[in-house]
Design a protein around this nucleic acid. Structure first.
Lengths: 176, 176
DNA sequence: GCGTTTGGTCAGCATGATTGACATATCCCT
DNA sequence: AGGGATATGTCAATCATGCTGACCAAACGC
């Protein structure tokens, strides 16, 4: 498949140069795939190592992160953010409650709700994970420069769906 | 933990404004975490759906991608890129060979090596996955603009380790 | 009072990762 | 030619994280 390239058949009479543009575009997209794969791995590597020592995984980190980000979040909202099933969350969340990383409190207006928050212990662990990840991000931001950071943000926002974009805006503001 | 913020104790006599800067920096890092989580999910979502229909997972996609990117790659090099164990790769790779997505050929200089390449069938599937992912990336790139794309690349490179950065350079050139 | 919503829980399954141990073929150096 | 190192494959067992379907309990709200 070394000689087969995209959309060639679809442009049998493409103008001179169009073929080269397609090659260029493909190289650009392939590079993006590689960057996302290796970059995301670099981003998760250090927290993963810390979590391993505590017999936890990335799922636990996500709970710590989003509960810390939005204290008093309901189980339902957390499920919507993580986009996993109630059962999958339960298996991670219940042990975290039992071991005192997360607390539940009945909602004041709706008593069915279990509002989730981090305990001191949970917040301390979250901060350790945050610090590890912060170092990696700060380093990348410093090397790249502020303008690059802005570009990074724009592209990442574009990669996610509309729902996730709204979720991010909500997280940035507080809890509207 | 709503009132506890980073490094406060470490800067008891910080100048006016330093405290605000720390708040700002934390918000920046938290945003980066959210962007990477939701962005990466958006990036993998469409291929994941296609793969599901064929009873494959993300691991299969990674093999198709990197073998397609570097035809004739050795098992060892692929392992180094994916950073998984031989056994983990074997469970994904062997069925793909059996079902005719990937072929093996003995290395000409070193006959121990099994040089991996995509078959027509494998390349066709890889292209379907690529096309799905390309649409998402192109959309994000178009919305963000070329300058943002450059910034995105810089930051993502910064997030990965030195080894991954070299690997990306190697992939971009060909197979040095 | 009754249907709906929120949350928890049970049993079972798939995927993709892990480790340790061992086998085979080939390479390369002495 | 011998022998250690290298490249790959394979066995068995385990773990983490996702899934489904079914069902229950409590509280809401009309």
């Amino acid at each position: 498949m070394l000689t087969k390239r995209p959309d060639m058949a679809a442009m049998p009479e493409a103008p001179r140069g169009a073929r080269d543009l397609l090659y260029l575009r493909e190289a650009e997209i392939r590079l993006a795939q590689d960057l996302l794969f290796f970059g995301y791995r670099g981003f998760t590597q250090r927290p993963d190592r810390l979590l391993e020592e505590l017999d936890m995984g990335r799922a636990h980190h996500r709970v710590l992160h989003f509960v810390g980000r939005r204290p008093g979040i309901t189980v339902g909202d957390l499920l919507a953010i993580l986009d996993i099933t109630k059962q999958s969350l339960g298996r991670v969340l219940q042990p975290m409650i039992a071991e005192g990383y997360v607390t539940q409190a009945a909602g004041r207006s709706d008593k069915r709700q279990r509002l989730l928050s981090l305990t001191e212990k949970g917040a301390a662990l979250e901060r350790r994970l945050y610090d590890a990840q912060r170092d990696v991000i700060m380093q990348a931001y410093r090397e790249a420069g502020p303008q690059a950071v802005d570009g990074f943000r724009r592209v990442m926002r574009g990669l996610m769906g509309e729902a996730a974009r709204e979720e991010i805006d909500r997280l940035e503001k507080g809890t509207p």
